[in-house]
Design a protein around this nucleic acid. Structure first.
Length: 274
DNA sequence: ATGACTGCTGAGAGCAGA
């Protein structure tokens, strides 16, 4: 089966592109970020007509996460336990959606055991951070640390679980993940604390599944001809539980989705799972 | 070419994005 993650930058502006992507790519489960709408505003019909179930979380015009799945959705979490709040008044924003999917019959059985019945996909939109001295940056680090603590518990509770932590991590973990490190002097996304917060997941056993399998940027700013000049960033990633990692056969970044009129500034990141 | 963004809200600029 095929799993993808994509920061769509408004699903209302991108619904036709999204369903076209699903059809073109053969994606079974799509995690979306920055849907920028409430559930009532979400174009669920477009996905349902294409044969997908949807789970949606959104509070207003900012953030927003969703999952579309060809397989039945069993359970939905609209935040993770301990997810930090932000703002005045502080609000737990729509940045994490955990969806448990019935994948019975869709994946291979391991030797001596039946095929797995459930896959959990978390669609994550990590806070941007804005500036290194902005409260949003501290919020970003808290958010990543809180997610790490929860996610470690998920692995401990069930080492055989198939879990994917996918989305827009808003961190460029390595220097080659931006086109020019000099352009990011003093900026967010490349700072040591952010990179350490991202790398910490690997210390707990999560495996970032795209790094070893594909190379490309996943984001190009709309401004200053960043895409024509290929001045991008690699900030969308997929951390897999060990049991899921063992089933991943390939990964791909759909750079072509950035082309043409009406593109999101991010492109889909795709995993094939057996 | 010393330039060159997009989406949302609400009706005009301002915020957010990274």
């Amino acid at each position: 089966m095929r799993i993808a993650t994509w920061n769509v930058n408004s699903i209302r502006a991108r619904a036709a592109r999204a369903t076209a992507f699903l059809e073109r790519s053969g994606t079974d489960v799509l995690a979306m970020q920055e849907t920028k709408c409430t559930p009532a505003q979400f174009p669920a019909e477009a996905f349902e007509e294409a044969g997908y179930h949807v789970a949606v979380h959104g509070l207003n015009q900012w953030n927003g996460v969703a999952v579309a799945s060809r397989h039945p959705i069993l359970r939905v979490h609209d935040h993770f336990p301990g997810q930090p709040a932000f703002g005045d008044p502080a609000v737990v924003e729509a940045r994490a959606l955990g969806v448990v999917i019935d994948v019975s019959g869709a994946l291979e059985g391991a030797p001596g055991s039946p095929a797995p019945a459930e896959l959990t996909v978390w669609s994550l939109y990590v806070p941007n951070g804005r500036e290194l001295d902005h409260p949003h940056y501290a919020y970003k680090l808290e958010w990543l640390a809180a997610l790490r603590a929860q996610a470690r518990g998920w692995l401990d509770a069930d080492p055989a679980a198939l879990v994917a932590l996918v989305g827009d991590w808003n961190v460029a973990p390595q220097d080659q993940d931006v086109w020019d490190m000099a352009a990011f002097e003093g900026a967010t996304h490349v700072s040591a604390p952010e990179r350490e917060a991202f790398a910490a997941f690997a210390e707990d056993g999560w495996i970032e599944a795209t790094r070893a399998r594909t190379t490309n940027y996943t984001y190009w700013d709309y401004q200053r001809l960043r895409f024509p000049k290929n001045e991008g960033m690699r900030i969308d990633f997929a951390y897999a539980s060990p049991a899921l990692e063992a089933r991943i056969t390939s990964a791909r970044i759909d750079r072509d989705e950035r082309k043409g009129k009406g593109a999101s500034d991010h492109v889909p990141v795709i995993l094939d799972v057996r």
